[in-house]
């Protein structure tokens, strides 16, 4: 549990002190990608706790989900379909589901 936390903190510091800025036009895409990544991480944690973790699946899921989410929202924007909210709902729903499962596993074990 220490390593992921350290990684998270390192990433936060790196991001905070870097000079990367997301242009306003892509802020929406980036936020969806972020949500997808968040979902992937919680999913991975849950799998790890359940001891069903698959490294390839996790890494590929993380990047693929984030990119796909951003891409879909982009395409939706071009077509006039607001897929942004759909992605928001789906990933938000999944995050809560993963969190609930994670909590259940952890509580059962102790």
């Amino acid at each position: 549990m220490i390593k992921p936390l350290l990684g998270l903190i390192a990433g936060l510091l790196l991001g905070y002190f870097s000079y990367i800025n997301i242009p306003l036009a892509y802020a929406k895409l980036f936020s969806v990608a972020l949500l997808a990544s968040l979902d992937s991480v919680f999913g991975g944690l849950r799998a790890a706790v359940a001891e069903k973790f698959d490294n390839t699946m996790f890494i590929s899921g993380f990047f693929f989900n984030a990119l796909m989410a951003a891409f879909l929202v982009y395409v939706g924007d071009r077509l006039g379909i607001d897929l942004y909210y759909v992605a928001l709902l789906t990933f938000g729903f999944r995050i809560f589901k993963n969190l609930a499962a994670l909590r259940r596993y952890l509580l059962k074990r102790h």
């Binding site: 990433g11 991001g15 870097s18 800025n21 997301i22 991480v41």
Partner: peptide
């Protein structure tokens, strides 16, 4: 992955 996520979070 958490590091990448943290990076994204901070940038966002």
């Amino acid at each position: 992955v958490c590091m990448v996520l943290g990076f994204m979070l901070a940038v966002q």
